[in-house]
Design a protein around this nucleic acid. Structure first.
Lengths: 240, 240
DNA sequence: TGTACATCAGTGAACGCGCGTTCACTGATGTAC
DNA sequence: TGTACATCAGTGAACGCGCGTTCACTGATGTAC
């Protein structure tokens, strides 16, 4: 009969670490990030609040873990959806990514608020821990954009009036984001349009998740329209 | 010699009501909406916390007042900027509105978070008090859009693939928002594009105000680019 | 103009609740010989 | 395999702090006659 591969303690620890994150995530949805409380989590686990400090260094560190976990889940979802589309169908790769982002956000509204909502007062996410996971979707979109450019499909609408400062910002962002990507085909104009496409996607989801939409509209269909508008910022309209 | 027109009490009350809102607004910036505390405000005023209840019904009511005041200030700023542009220059009216929105947001980051950030847990804004002030900028943009349409300038990019559900949502929103506006020229396509233009404006400001931008970019120039992208959603590119 | 009464502003104590974090400690699990 | 010691998990009390809201109350301002 198989003995427990690695002790009862290790098993318990794993179970508890997972339970803490699960409960924390639910509390997040009930009281928001600012109200997240270690004591409340301990209470629900039926243990003394001090015991939590065996698993979590502090309240802020727990928040950081939640953020990283959420960014990872979002990145996974987006990449999975995008990977399922044939490489050649670049428009559809963009749309699939956008749909995956919305689906994740709608399914995890409070995690969404944590990632894209107003900042938690008194808490500053440590960039070195959150940035790698936090930029995965942007990278994904950037790769799609590069492919579009390579195929000659991409056309940013307002190539005309781009100021030198905006151009410089685009270059800086490309430099910062694009180390691992072939950015040869990405003009500053296109990159700026890509940034706003991404901004519009995020906002389209936030608008729904944060309840700024009222109950009038069919949120999913509205987002489909938003997706197309975002796409129109970076790509020429397809032949009808 | 003029006697005080209306008693020392009325004067004090006015002063205090204003002071409470001023202090509350500052606290908002230090601890966020979720941390806003009547006791802290009373402490700063040097009075007993119970005394505040002579001026404010409850913490939530104070939040509501802050929201209405902020929406009003934003609406004022946007309308003032737009009114300064010659009626005929419809593009510039749009751009001026967008710039005013950003300027207000950057100058009042925490009020911005209150209006457009993630919702405050446990607090639901009473729509009957916040909606009238909260929709003024949308109305303004809608009037501009109607003028564009009237002049034949407006062209929504993806008239092609609009689903019946999206079309219905657009109609419902037009019905809801557009009672006081001549919506004759506003097609559903155009209205949907207008919604996303507005969404993009808000998000362009939030992106900066919430610090999602890093320190790489020139935020103002980036927003100029965003403004043009938003405009491109509703209007054909101008002749060069 | 002077007085009696009503209104209002502000007090301070209290109720009942919450939080993060530290610390000395017990008792169980794991490990080396 | 058995024992001695080290590690780890969890306890419970404590520190020092916060909050919203209610209530009976004093003393000042305003008003009617």
């Amino acid at each position: 009969m198989g003995k427990p591969a690695r002790g009862i303690r290790a098993e318990n620890r794993e179970r508890l670490e997972a339970a803490i994150l699960t409960i924390a995530r639910r509390h997040l949805g009930e009281v928001g990030a600012a109200g997240l409380s270690l004591r409340a989590i301990a209470r629900e686990l039926g243990m003394a609040s001090s015991a939590l400090y065996r698993y979590v260094a502090s309240r802020d560190e727990l928040l950081t873990r939640l953020i990283v976990e959420s960014f990872t889940a979002l990145g996974d979802a987006a990449e999975r959806a995008e990977a399922a589309v044939p490489r050649g169908d670049v428009r559809e790769r963009f749309l699939a990514t956008g749909r995956a982002v919305r689906e994740w956000g709608v399914a995890h509204p409070f995690d969404w608020a944590l990632l894209f909502g107003s900042p938690v007062p008194g808490y500053a996410a440590p960039g070195d821990r959150t940035t790698p996971a936090g930029t995965r979707v942007q990278f994904l979109l950037l790769r799609i954009l590069a492919d579009m450019a390579h195929l000659g499909m991409a056309t940013a609408p307002n190539a005309d009036g781009i100021s030198p400062a905006a151009r410089a910002s685009a270059a800086a962002i490309a430099d910062d984001l694009g180390r691992e990507i072939d950015t040869a085909d990405l003009t500053p104009e296109l990159l700026l349009a890509g940034i706003d496409a991404w901004t519009l996607l995020i906002a389209g989801v936030s608008r729904e998740v944060f309840g700024h939409l009222g109950e009038i509209a069919d949120a999913e269909e509205l987002y489909e329209s938003t997706l197309r508008h975002a796409l129109s910022l970076v790509v020429a309209a397809p032949a009808p």
